[in-house]
Protein backbone atom coordinates (compact mmCIF):
# COMPACT_ATOMS: atom_id res chain seq x y z
CA UNK A 1 0.00 0.00 0.00
CA UNK A 2 2.65 2.49 1.05
CA UNK A 3 4.86 1.33 -1.80
CA UNK A 4 2.14 2.10 -4.30
CA UNK A 5 1.75 5.60 -2.89
CA UNK A 6 5.45 6.24 -3.22
CA UNK A 7 5.41 5.12 -6.84
CA UNK A 8 2.52 7.45 -7.53
CA UNK A 9 4.32 10.33 -5.89
CA UNK A 10 7.42 9.68 -7.96
CA UNK A 11 5.55 9.53 -11.17
CA UNK A 12 3.69 12.67 -10.24
CA UNK A 13 6.90 14.41 -9.39
CA UNK A 14 8.35 13.18 -12.65
CA UNK A 15 5.36 14.52 -14.49
CA UNK A 16 5.68 17.95 -12.91
CA UNK A 17 9.36 17.93 -13.61
CA UNK A 18 8.91 17.18 -17.28
CA UNK A 19 6.13 19.75 -17.50
CA UNK A 20 8.44 22.30 -15.97
CA UNK A 21 11.14 21.47 -18.48
CA UNK A 22 8.69 21.82 -21.34
CA UNK A 23 7.47 25.24 -20.23
CA UNK A 24 11.00 26.40 -19.53
CA UNK A 25 12.22 25.32 -22.93
CA UNK A 26 9.20 26.90 -24.59
CA UNK A 27 10.00 30.16 -22.86
CA UNK A 28 13.59 29.99 -23.98
CA UNK A 29 12.63 29.16 -27.56
CA UNK A 30 9.74 31.58 -27.63
CA UNK A 31 11.69 34.75 -27.05
CA UNK A 32 14.20 34.46 -29.88
CA UNK A 33 11.44 33.43 -32.25
CA UNK A 34 9.68 36.73 -31.74
CA UNK A 35 12.58 38.91 -32.73
CA UNK A 36 14.04 36.49 -35.21
CA UNK A 37 13.87 38.53 -38.42
CA UNK A 38 15.78 41.43 -36.86
CA UNK A 39 18.32 39.18 -35.21
CA UNK A 40 19.02 37.48 -38.51
CA UNK A 41 19.68 40.81 -40.19
CA UNK A 42 21.93 41.89 -37.31
CA UNK A 43 23.89 38.69 -37.74
CA UNK A 44 24.02 39.21 -41.50
CA UNK A 45 25.28 42.76 -41.05
CA UNK A 46 27.99 41.52 -38.69
CA UNK A 47 28.90 38.81 -41.18
CA UNK A 48 29.17 41.04 -44.23
CA UNK A 49 30.47 44.23 -42.64
CA UNK A 50 32.38 42.89 -39.66
CA UNK A 51 31.24 43.07 -36.08
CA UNK A 52 32.07 45.82 -33.69
CA UNK A 53 30.50 48.90 -32.18
CA UNK A 54 28.29 50.72 -34.64
CA UNK A 55 27.43 54.38 -34.45
CA UNK A 56 24.29 55.78 -35.96
CA UNK A 57 25.81 58.88 -37.48
CA UNK A 58 27.60 60.21 -40.56
CA UNK A 59 25.45 58.08 -42.88
CA UNK A 60 22.40 59.53 -44.64
CA UNK A 61 19.87 57.58 -46.63
CA UNK A 62 18.06 59.54 -49.28
CA UNK A 63 14.97 57.59 -50.25
CA UNK A 64 11.23 58.14 -50.51
CA UNK A 65 9.24 57.84 -47.28
CA UNK A 66 6.53 56.04 -49.19
CA UNK A 67 7.50 54.00 -52.21
CA UNK A 68 4.49 53.48 -54.43
CA UNK A 69 6.14 50.73 -56.41
CA UNK A 70 8.23 48.28 -54.44
CA UNK A 71 9.85 47.06 -57.63
CA UNK A 72 11.85 50.24 -58.01
CA UNK A 73 12.84 52.10 -54.86
CA UNK A 74 15.60 54.64 -55.49
CA UNK A 75 18.10 54.77 -52.66
CA UNK A 76 21.05 57.06 -52.26
CA UNK A 77 23.52 56.60 -49.44
CA UNK A 78 25.80 59.43 -48.48
CA UNK A 79 28.58 59.14 -45.93
CA UNK A 80 30.07 62.26 -44.43
CA UNK A 81 33.63 61.04 -44.16
CA UNK A 82 36.94 62.06 -45.75
CA UNK A 83 38.34 59.87 -48.51
CA UNK A 84 42.05 60.15 -47.73
CA UNK A 85 44.52 57.46 -48.64
CA UNK A 86 44.78 56.25 -45.05
CA UNK A 87 41.29 57.03 -43.81
CA UNK A 88 38.43 56.33 -46.15
CA UNK A 89 35.13 54.52 -46.45
CA UNK A 90 35.89 51.05 -47.69
CA UNK A 91 32.42 49.71 -48.14
CA UNK A 92 28.78 50.71 -48.04
CA UNK A 93 26.04 48.10 -47.82
CA UNK A 94 22.28 48.33 -48.05
CA UNK A 95 20.04 45.90 -46.16
CA UNK A 96 16.27 45.58 -46.34
CA UNK A 97 15.14 43.83 -43.16
CA UNK A 98 11.95 42.27 -44.46
CA UNK A 99 13.11 41.13 -47.87
CA UNK A 100 13.52 37.37 -48.31
CA UNK A 101 17.18 38.11 -49.05
CA UNK A 102 17.96 41.10 -46.81
CA UNK A 103 21.28 42.06 -48.33
CA UNK A 104 20.55 44.17 -51.38
CA UNK A 105 23.92 45.54 -52.35
CA UNK A 106 27.41 46.15 -51.11
CA UNK A 107 29.73 48.69 -52.68
CA UNK A 108 33.46 48.52 -52.15
CA UNK A 109 35.16 51.84 -52.62
CA UNK A 110 38.74 53.04 -52.68
CA UNK A 111 40.41 56.26 -51.60
CA UNK A 112 40.28 57.21 -55.30
CA UNK A 113 36.50 57.40 -55.13
CA UNK A 114 36.82 60.91 -53.79
CA UNK A 115 33.39 60.88 -52.20
CA UNK A 116 31.57 58.19 -50.26
CA UNK A 117 28.23 58.26 -51.99
CA UNK A 118 26.47 55.57 -53.96
CA UNK A 119 23.01 55.18 -55.42
CA UNK A 120 21.00 52.26 -56.69
CA UNK A 121 17.43 51.16 -57.18
CA UNK A 122 16.24 48.23 -55.15
CA UNK A 123 13.19 45.99 -54.78
CA UNK A 124 11.20 45.87 -51.57
CA UNK A 125 8.63 43.21 -50.77
CA UNK A 126 6.81 45.25 -48.14
CA UNK A 127 7.19 48.12 -45.73
CA UNK A 128 10.47 47.61 -43.98
CA UNK A 129 13.42 49.05 -42.20
CA UNK A 130 16.25 49.84 -44.58
CA UNK A 131 19.74 50.01 -43.17
CA UNK A 132 22.80 51.54 -44.75
CA UNK A 133 26.05 50.51 -43.14
CA UNK A 134 29.40 52.10 -43.91
CA UNK A 135 32.74 50.69 -42.91
CA UNK A 136 36.00 52.60 -42.87
CA UNK A 137 39.32 51.03 -43.81
CA UNK A 138 40.19 51.03 -40.11
CA UNK A 139 37.09 49.00 -39.29
CA UNK A 140 34.82 51.68 -37.82
CA UNK A 141 31.15 51.14 -38.54
CA UNK A 142 28.57 53.83 -39.16
CA UNK A 143 24.92 53.26 -39.87
CA UNK A 144 21.65 54.86 -40.79
CA UNK A 145 18.26 53.22 -40.48
CA UNK A 146 15.19 54.43 -42.34
CA UNK A 147 11.74 53.01 -42.59
CA UNK A 148 10.34 52.95 -46.10
CA UNK A 149 6.65 52.30 -46.63
CA UNK A 150 5.71 50.24 -49.63
CA UNK A 151 2.23 50.26 -51.07
CA UNK A 152 2.75 47.69 -53.83
CA UNK A 153 5.31 45.00 -53.17
CA UNK A 154 8.07 44.24 -55.60
CA UNK A 155 8.71 40.59 -54.85
CA UNK A 156 6.61 37.85 -56.32
CA UNK A 157 4.06 38.20 -59.04
Amino acid sequence: MSKQWIEKAISRRGLFKSLGVITASAAVLGIPQKGRAGDDVDALVAKTMGSGPMEEKRVTIEAPIIAENGKVVPIKVMVDHPMDADNFIQSIAIFVDKNPIPMAAKFNLTANSGKAQVAARIKMGKTSKVRAIARTNTGKLYAAINEIKVTIGGCGG
Partner: peptide, 27 residues
Amino acid sequence: TFNGATVMEAEWGAAVSADPYISFFLK
Protein backbone atom coordinates in the same frame (compact mmCIF):
# COMPACT_ATOMS: atom_id res chain seq x y z
CA THR B 1 38.09 50.22 -63.49
CA PHE B 2 39.68 53.48 -64.54
CA ASN B 3 42.85 53.16 -66.62
CA GLY B 4 43.10 49.57 -65.44
CA ALA B 5 42.87 50.24 -61.70
CA THR B 6 39.78 49.10 -59.81
CA VAL B 7 37.90 52.09 -58.49
CA MET B 8 34.64 50.53 -57.37
CA GLU B 9 33.31 47.05 -56.87
CA ALA B 10 29.76 46.17 -56.00
CA GLU B 11 28.32 42.88 -54.80
CA TRP B 12 24.65 42.76 -55.61
CA GLY B 13 21.85 40.55 -54.41
CA ALA B 14 18.69 39.75 -56.27
CA ALA B 15 16.99 42.67 -54.53
CA VAL B 16 18.44 45.18 -56.98
CA SER B 17 15.75 46.34 -59.41
CA ALA B 18 15.53 45.21 -63.02
CA ASP B 19 17.60 47.29 -65.45
CA PRO B 20 19.88 48.24 -62.58
CA TYR B 21 21.14 51.75 -62.10
CA ILE B 22 24.31 52.55 -60.24
CA SER B 23 25.95 55.79 -59.30
CA PHE B 24 29.27 56.33 -57.60
CA PHE B 25 32.05 58.89 -57.44
CA LEU B 26 35.50 58.94 -58.90
CA LYS B 27 38.44 61.27 -58.50
